[in-house]
């Protein structure tokens, strides 16, 4: 199954190698990985998309959480996350096909960022399925180059930052277990209040 893992890590050298090592040591491929600073410049956030056996991935996530440089880890459940990817596509577009390609671009609310006599460079943002669908439609015209940033994701309900204490994060580190169950319940309460309405917004 596909997992989208979001990790808050110390922003210093060597952290990426430690995290990648947990996957590679088990022969797991990382589908995509996006890293960037957070609101706190000493903290980076990594969004890792990987596929594989649930049990092994669960073990990887626990191991990730054990790494000294990892502050928090959360396995974002499908349906609970907002996911985006930025993709640059250089597609073949001659004078005959240009308008057809531009129509596809408009349909997907993508942007043309560069034009040359026989190609167009398109910028598109979206979830995985949107990007895949667009690539599918452009394929007959000829795709010359694709650059993807990899997914970044954020949870709908919970707040994951270095200071939050969200029950959804697999954070055993500062777990005062007595309090944990309570926040678990609060979490569920919040979940119910957030309701379906908000989900429709995107």
């Amino acid at each position: 199954m596909k997992h989208t893992i979001s990790a808050l890590v110390e922003n210093h050298f060597g952290v990426l190698a430690r995290i990648a090592g947990l996957f590679s040591a088990r022969g797991f491929n990382i589908d995509s990985l996006a890293v960037g600073e957070t609101e706190d410049p000493t903290v980076s956030r990594m969004t890792i998309v990987a596929q594989g056996d649930d049990r092994v991935l669960d073990q990887i996530i626990k191991q990730l959480d054990k790494l000294v440089d990892v502050i928090k880890v959360i396995d974002l459940k499908p349906g609970q996350l907002i996911e985006r990817e930025l993709v640059l596509i250089k597609a073949r577009a001659t004078s005959e096909t240009r308008s057809d390609v531009m129509q596809i671009v408009n349909t997907f609310r993508a942007k043309i960022v560069d034009v040359s006599p026989d190609s167009l460079t398109i910028e598109v943002t979206g979830g995985e399925s949107k990007v895949d669908a667009m690539l599918e439609l452009l394929r007959p015209f000829g795709i010359l180059e694709v650059v993807r940033t990899g997914s970044i994701a954020i949870s709908r309900k919970s707040v994951l930052n270095a200071h939050s204490n969200d029950p959804a994060s697999k954070n055993f580190k500062d777990r005062r277990v007595g309090a944990r169950r309570k926040t678990d319940k609060e979490g569920k309460e919040k979940l119910r209040q957030s309701g379906e309405g908000r989900r429709k917004l995107d």
Partner: peptide
Amino acid sequence: YIRSYQPVAEPDIRD
């Protein structure tokens, strides 16, 4: 103090 490493958890009495 290492913010990302706080290893000692008190056992949960309920467990």
